[in-house]
């Protein structure tokens, strides 16, 4: 029993020890940029993959020409006239000197608009990145992906049905 406990503790220590050095987070690589003019503010929108595909996650960066230090703002995402998201501009977790979205996916294909409401030393202003084309999702249709992923559920249901039939007469 004691030996088993030591073996378990040793394994846990090994796991914990390995978790530290193996944590190497991917840098944010911008491969495409678009310019947005929001009043007096010149904003560069960066994408880590291009073209953008539905459901495929990527890093977005939003960089005002003279930095984010004295500014704040809101990002509003619109898809086909429908408001999809509305949140304050936050620093990118892996690139803290700029605003951004990390490993973020736009859920649907079509035309997207990113609206930026900025406020800084030159006052409030609004700018839009219009007609951002998002391609169809990669990979198999979602129906097939869901069918594959719910096999454990249907397996469990099949098991329950068998168990139900075998115990049906034993209850009464």
């Amino acid at each position: 029993m004691r030996r088993t406990l030591f073996a378990l503790l040793g394994t846990a220590a090994l796991l914990l020890g390995l978790a530290g050095p193996s944590l190497a987070f991917e840098p944010v690589n911008v491969v495409h940029t678009e310019k947005v003019q929001a009043g007096p503010y010149n904003l560069t929108v960066g994408f880590s993959t291009w073209p953008v595909k539905a459901m495929q996650s990527l890093d977005f960066t939003f960089v005002p020409e003279d930095g984010i230090a004295d500014k704040k703002g809101t990002l509003t995402m619109v898809w086909g006239g429908e408001l999809m998201d509305d949140s304050p501009l936050a620093r990118h977790p892996r690139k803290r000197e700029v605003w951004g979205l990390d490993i973020y996916a736009l859920p649907a294909p079509g035309e997207w608009t990113l609206r930026f409401d900025l406020d800084g030393p030159a006052g409030p202003a609004t700018g839009e990145l219009k007609n951002l084309k998002v391609m169809e999702q990669p990979g198999p249709p979602m129906g097939l992906s869901w069918a594959i992923s719910t096999i454990p559920l249907f397996g469990l249901i099949a098991f329950i049905v068998v168990a139900w039939r075998r115990t049906r007469h034993a209850d009464r």
């Binding site: 459901m55 495929q56 996916a105 990979g139 979602m142 869901w146």
Partner: peptide
């Protein structure tokens, strides 16, 4: 295929 999305309800995550 889809990137390291932090989506809890993706089909494989539900699997």
């Amino acid at each position: 295929l889809y990137g390291f999305d932090a989506v809890i309800d993706s089909p494989p995550h539900i699997g």
